[in-house]
C-alpha cells in the first residue's frame, strides 16, 4: 500500500486539535485508529491534506464512570480499552457483547468506538446499543461544544450531523437505569469477525411483573440505524411470553427498510431481524429480572462466541 502525501500533527489538547481541524477548512481529518481512514485514503475515497492524530490527547484516551452521570468515553478510546474496562464489563454488558463481536482482535486493538460512530455506517456494531442507551455525543468546534442525542446523529449511509469544523470528543452513556436490561445480537455475513448483515440493540424495563418501556434499535436494515417504534409500543405494559415476542419480532422486522447487497438479501435481512429482535429481548428481559414464559433459554440467544 502506498498512501497519498499529507501533513501530520499530534496535538496535546482538544483546543489545539479543534483549531487545526477548523483552520484547514475541510481539508484535514481527525485520525485515531486509522483502520477505516487509511484504506479510504489509499483508495482515494477520502482526501486529506492534513491528519490530526487524537491519540496524544490524554482526555480523549480516558474512560470514566460516575454513578450520577454514567460512562464517558473519549474519542480516542479503542474498542479493546472498552472491553478491558471493569466499569463497562460490570454495568454495560450489552456494550461488551457488541464490541467483542466487532471486527478482529487487531482492529479492536486499533479502532475506536468514536470512529465506529463517525463513519456513519448503518451496520456499525456499537451503535444500536448506544442508541438504546440514549447516549449523547459531545461535539466540539471553535464555536463551542454541543451535546447531540446519538439518535439524531445519523443522516444517511456515511452521512452524519457532524459539521465540517466539528470534532466528536466524547460519548456520554447514561448510568444503567434500575430494573432494566440491555442486549445486543448480530448476524454476521459469515464469521463472527464479519460486518453485520443485521444487528440489534434492545432495552427492556421491568415494571412489577410486566414490561414497562422498551427500546428496539436495528442496524444494517435501513439507511441509518432504526428504532422500531410500533414493536416498542406493543411491548409496553405487556406480560412477556414466547408468542408475544414472536409477534414483536415480526412487527420490528416490518418496520425495517433493508436492501439487497453482497452480505444478504433484503428478504433474508427482514426474516433475520425478527429472529434477532426476539432473541435479544429474551436476554434483555432476563437481565432486567423479568421472566419470559415458554421462551428458549437465554444462553443461546446472542450468538456470542467469545
Amino acid at each position: 500500500m502506498s498512501l497519498p502525501h499529507f501533513e501530520y500533527f499530534a496535538p496535546r489538547t482538544i483546543e489545539e486539535a479543534v483549531a487545526l481541524l477548523a483552520g484547514a477548512g475541510g481539508r484535514a481529518r481527525p485520525f485515531a485508529g486509522g483502520t477505516d481512514l487509511l484504506p479510504r485514503l489509499q483508495s482515494g475515497l477520502v482526501r486529506a491534506e492534513t491528519l490530526v492524530d487524537l491519540k496524544r490527547i490524554p482526555e480523549l484516551c480516558a474512560i470514566g464512570f460516575d454513578p450520577a452521570s454514567g460512562l464517558t468515553i473519549g474519542a480516542a478510546v479503542r474498542l479493546a480499552d472498552l472491553l478491558d474496562s471493569p466499569d463497562v464489563q460490570r454495568r454495560y454488558p450489552a456494550m461488551t457483547d457488541a464490541v467483542s463481536q466487532t471486527a478482529t482482535v487487531q482492529i479492536r486493538n486499533m479502532g475506536t468506538i468514536a470512529g465506529n460512530v463517525c463513519n456513519g455506517s448503518p451496520c456499525a456494531d456499537s451503535v444500536p446499543v448506544l442508541i438504546a442507551r440514549l447516549a449523547h455525543l459531545a461535539l466540539m468546534s471553535p464555536r463551542g461544544e454541543r451535546l447531540l442525542p446519538i439518535g439524531d446523529f445519523f443522516k444517511g449511509p456515511g452521512e452524519t450531523a457532524l459539521e465540517p469544523d466539528e470534532l466528536l470528543v466524547r460519548i456520554h452513556v447514561p448510568p444503567p437505569p434500575p430494573y432494566t436490561g440491555f442486549a445486543f445480537a448480530k448476524l454476521p455475513a459469515r464469521t463472527a469477525s464479519d460486518i453485520s448483515a443485521v444487528n440489534v440493540g434492545v432495552m427492556v424495563a421491568r415494571q412489577g411483573g410486566v414490561c414497562g418501556e422498551a427500546r428496539i434499535v436495528l442496524g444494517a436494515v435501513g439507511p441509518v440505524p432504526l428504532r422500531a417504534h410500533q414493536a416498542e409500543l406493543r411491548l409496553a405494559g405487556a406480560t412477556l411470553g414466547a408468542r408475544l415476542l414472536e409477534e414483536v419480532g415480526r412487527l420490528a422486522a416490518s418496520e425495517t427498510r433493508p436492501i439487497d447487497d453482497l452480505r444478504a438479501s433484503a428478504a433474508y435481512r427482514r426474516d433475520m431481524a425478527a429472529v434477532l429482535v426476539r432473541r435479544a429481548l429474551v436476554v434483555a428481559a432476563t437481565r432486567a429480572g423479568l421472566a419470559v414464559a415458554d421462551a428458549a433459554p437465554a444462553g443461546d440467544a446472542t450468538g456470542a462466541s467469545e
Partner: peptide
C-alpha cells in the same frame, strides 16, 4: 509481511506496546 494492505489478512501483525496491531494500517509517525 505485507499482505492485503487493507486490514483483512493479518500478515503484517506486530505487537505495539503489547497489543497486536496491523502494521500496514499503522502510521509509523503515530
Amino acid at each position: 509481511k505485507h499482505g492485503c494492505g487493507q486490514g483483512d489478512c493479518g500478515a503484517c501483525t506486530v505487537l505495539l506496546d503489547g497489543r497486536s496491531v496491523l502494521s500496514c494500517l499503522t502510521l509509523a509517525v503515530s
